[in-house]
Amino acid sequence: MQTLSLSEFRAHASEMLDLVEKGETVRILRHGKPVAELVPVRGAAERAQEPPPAWKQPFEPLRVVRPDGKTGAQLIIEEREGGW
């Protein structure tokens, strides 16, 4: 991993991108603290192997059965018709 300050990165951005293109990671520092990392882009084959994020995974809808047998939609309609 290559580590350099922001000013050094600005002066050598093209060279740093060449390193990243070859598979190296470049960490950029501002006032001595890491603020960014440039990493190589993963290929389509690598991305296809990882599972989808949790928000994209299928799920079963929640089914709540009330004692009176009414659905949530029916309760909302009744409340609206009640004229709060």
Score class of each variant (00 low, 15 high):
59 F>G: 01
44 A>N: 11
43 G>D: 11
67 P>R: 12
48 A>W: 09
21 E>C: 10
10 R>Y: 14
73 A>T: 13
29 L>N: 04
11 A>I: 07
27 R>S: 10
70 K>F: 00
3 T>R: 05
54 A>M: 13
21 E>F: 08
28 I>E: 00
60 E>T: 15
67 P>T: 15
26 V>H: 07
83 G>H: 09
30 R>W: 14
53 P>F: 01
56 K>S: 04
13 A>I: 01
51 P>K: 06
40 P>E: 07
26 V>W: 02
19 L>P: 03
59 F>L: 03
28 I>L: 00
67 P>V: 08
82 G>P: 13
47 R>E: 14
65 V>R: 06
37 E>L: 05
83 G>W: 09
2 Q>K: 08
34 P>L: 07
38 L>P: 05
68 D>Y: 03
33 K>V: 15
48 A>H: 03
52 P>V: 04
42 R>V: 15
84 W>V: 15
47 R>K: 15
82 G>V: 02
39 V>N: 02
47 R>S: 13
46 E>Q: 05
35 V>S: 03
38 L>W: 06
76 I>C: 10
47 R>W: 15
56 K>R: 11
43 G>S: 10
37 E>G: 01
20 V>C: 02
44 A>W: 10
35 V>M: 09
51 P>Q: 00
2 Q>H: 07
40 P>L: 08
62 L>D: 07
44 A>E: 14
76 I>P: 11
80 R>K: 12
52 P>H: 01
13 A>M: 04
53 P>W: 00
32 G>W: 07
74 Q>N: 01
27 R>D: 02
79 E>D: 12
44 A>G: 00
49 Q>M: 10
23 G>D: 01
45 A>W: 03
27 R>A: 11
62 L>N: 03
77 I>R: 15
45 A>F: 00
33 K>D: 12
24 E>P: 05
34 P>I: 10
4 L>Y: 00
24 E>V: 05
56 K>Q: 05
48 A>G: 06
27 R>T: 12
27 R>W: 02
56 K>E: 07
69 G>I: 07
